Amino acid sequence: MPEIAQTAYEMISGMTPVLQPGLFVFITTKNPALVTSLSSEAISTFKEEEGLSMLIPVELAKKSKLNVDAPMRFITLNVFSSLEGVGLTAAVSAALGENGIACNMVAAFHHDHVFVPSKLCDQAMEVLLALQSQADQYAKPNG
């Protein structure tokens, strides 16, 4: 097995997925007033050509009269994942996809975060824990 693949198994094996509290929605806007009023409470932002994408709490979106039809929960993958690491995001999104769970991956400096439909968060946690367990057998050297 190539060393890069082994590194991916080690990251997946060492991850501890943690379901975070709260419901969030993805929104996008070019409206400067809306950006100003929402950005301080956004948990993530990304500037795109079409506008500023933000992840904000559902309550804030409702208060701002924004669409809340697709509430998300997020799972933090508590594992050191280098910004140069290969394979963690692909393995997580593939495992969730194989189980019919849409996901949006957000990589931050310290951790990767997985946003899943709120109704499927428990199932997503089960999938991630199973993935971690399966990777564990490949990450440990044969002894």
Rank of each mutant, 00 (worst) to 15 (best):
M1V: 10
M1L: 10
E3N: 06
I4C: 05
I4G: 02
I4A: 11
T7M: 13
A8K: 05
A8Q: 06
A8P: 03
Y9W: 14
S13H: 11
M15L: 12
M15S: 02
T16W: 04
V18G: 01
L19E: 09
L19Y: 13
L23M: 06
F24A: 00
F24E: 00
F26V: 05
I27G: 01
K30R: 14
P32V: 10
V35N: 09
T36Y: 10
L38T: 05
S39V: 13
S40C: 02
I43C: 04
S44M: 09
K47L: 12
E48I: 03
E49L: 13
E49Q: 13
E50P: 01
E50H: 14
G51E: 06
L52C: 06
P57N: 08
P57Y: 03
K62I: 06
K63V: 10
S64H: 09
K65H: 14
L66F: 11
V68E: 14
D69I: 07
P71N: 07
R73G: 05
F74L: 08
I75G: 00
T76K: 09
L77F: 05
S81F: 04
S82W: 07
E84L: 14
V86F: 11
T89L: 09
T89I: 12
A91Y: 10
V92A: 06
V92G: 03
A94T: 15
L96R: 12
G97D: 10
N99W: 03
G100P: 10
G100E: 12
I101D: 10
A102T: 12
A102K: 09
A102P: 12
A102C: 11
C103F: 01
N104I: 00
M105C: 06
A107P: 01
A108I: 01
H111V: 00
H111G: 01
V116N: 00
K119Q: 14
L120I: 04
L120V: 07
L120N: 13
Q123P: 04
A124P: 06
E126K: 15
L129P: 01
A130C: 06
A130H: 10
Q132C: 14
D136P: 05
Y138M: 03
Y138P: 00
K140H: 12
P141G: 15
P141N: 15
N142M: 12
N142C: 11
N142G: 09
